[in-house]
Amino acid sequence: MNTSNGEVLSIIAIRTFKFAKALMEEHFNEKYLESDKYKDATFKGKIAEALVTNRDTSYNVNVTGTMKIHGVEQPASYTAAYSVKGGMPSLEGSFNIALKDYNITIPKLVIENIAEVVKVTCKFDLSPYQKKN
């Protein structure tokens, strides 16, 4: 997140998602998300509101941008809770992902077992970026 212009970028490696059942994790990577081919889920966007960083605060912000999962880009806009505590900003929110929007198909045989719309909850606790030399 760039607090001066509201730009946000989140990249998550698909392989890092952990499941309670190892077999689910294998199927998630192998059959559905194809993490060999599409390594990351990426969201790139911009927060409409100005971001306060110099005092403790909390308010809702609107994020608009592009979500890229399974190699498919979709425009996306979400409402998230922005807060600052002790100089540390954080961003929290949840949204729904419809698998068909990202070209992820479920075989009819197992359709009862897999949600077609997935609710994703995320929380980012941010720390100041130190430039490396």
């Binding site: 997140m1 760039n2 607090t3 890092t16 998602f17 995320c122 941010l126 970026y129």
Partner: peptide
């Protein structure tokens, strides 16, 4: 798992520049 990866595993940064 999303909670896990976002909140625990990944470093997240706020930029001021």
């Amino acid at each position: 798992k999303v909670l896990l990866t976002c909140a625990v595993l990944l470093p997240s940064y706020a930029l001021f520049a």
